[in-house]
Amino acid sequence: MNTGRFALRCGSVLLLSLSLAACGGNAPGCSQCPPLEGTYGLALGTGTTPSSCQGVTVTLPRGPLEVQRQESALTGQLDGMALNGTAYASGDFSLVGNRTLSPDGGTPAAGPESVSLSGRYVAAEGDGGVPRLEGEWLGNFASTSSGTVRRCAVTRPFTATRQ
């Protein structure tokens, strides 16, 4: 008997694939990429923490944001979390990372379970101008209490100025 679970899974996979294609998820990286590499001072914009985060420890990143580039492939680090992503000729970029276990091999280190940064490289303007990155930071947080895991997501606009 078909309970519909297979159809639901296939439909979910199809929708995810279509959304990635529509959002540029399948777009190739650049061969003539903007110079995103560098160390950036990170400033998050203001925002409200969702009510779903009540009881969850939310720690926002402080930076700096470090970015390395090899053609269109990006790697980086933000508050001890390794990041990987892609640069595009348009100046757009994306970086994602997942928290790993602490150095003692036990509990995950403090902070979000995963993050993503998506935005755009803005070249220096005028004499003495400094390049910057602008976009949106998303952090996914979790907290376990009495055997129950609570999860929430926090988004903030960000500006990161090259140091």
Score class of each variant (00 low, 15 high):
M1L: 04
M1F: 11
G4I: 00
R5H: 08
F6D: 09
A7K: 01
L8G: 02
R9A: 07
R9C: 10
S12W: 12
V13P: 01
L14R: 10
L15Q: 02
L15A: 11
L16W: 01
L16T: 10
L16S: 06
S19I: 04
L20C: 01
A21L: 13
C23W: 09
G24M: 01
G25R: 02
A27C: 03
G29P: 04
C30R: 00
C30F: 03
P34H: 01
P34N: 02
P35A: 05
L36K: 05
L36M: 06
L36S: 07
E37K: 13
G38K: 04
T39P: 04
G41F: 13
L42N: 04
G45A: 02
T46Q: 14
T46A: 15
T46L: 14
G47M: 06
T49V: 12
T49N: 04
T49L: 11
P50A: 06
S51A: 14
S51L: 11
S51C: 03
C53H: 03
C53A: 08
Q54S: 15
V56R: 09
V58S: 05
T59G: 14
G63I: 11
P64I: 15
P64D: 13
E66T: 15
E66R: 15
E66V: 15
E66D: 15
Q68H: 14
R69W: 12
A73M: 14
A73E: 15
L74R: 11
T75P: 06
D79K: 02
G80P: 09
M81T: 01
L83G: 11
L83I: 13
L83R: 12
N84C: 11
G85W: 10
G85R: 05
A87S: 12
Y88F: 12
G91W: 01
F93V: 07
S94A: 11
L95Y: 05
L95M: 06
G97S: 07
G97V: 07
G97F: 06
G97N: 04
N98Q: 15
R99S: 09
L101D: 08
L101E: 09
S102E: 09
S102D: 12
P103G: 05
P103M: 00
G105S: 00
T107E: 12
P108A: 09
A110Y: 06
A110M: 06
G111K: 11
P112G: 07
P112Q: 09
E113N: 15
S114D: 04
S114T: 05
S114M: 05
V115Q: 03
S116I: 02
L117W: 07
S118K: 12
S118Q: 13
G119P: 02
Y121W: 05
Y121P: 02
A123M: 03
A124Y: 01
E125C: 01
E125V: 14
D127Q: 13
G128T: 06
G128W: 07
G128R: 10
V130E: 09
R132M: 07
E134L: 07
E136V: 14
W137S: 09
L138F: 10
F141R: 05
T144I: 13
T144R: 13
T144F: 09
S145R: 12
S145T: 14
S146T: 12
G147F: 00
G147H: 06
T148D: 10
V149F: 02
V149M: 13
R150L: 10
R150E: 11
C152E: 03
A153E: 08
R156N: 08
R156P: 02
F158M: 04
T159H: 00
T161I: 11
T161P: 04
R162H: 01
R162Y: 04
R162S: 00
Q163L: 12
Q163W: 07
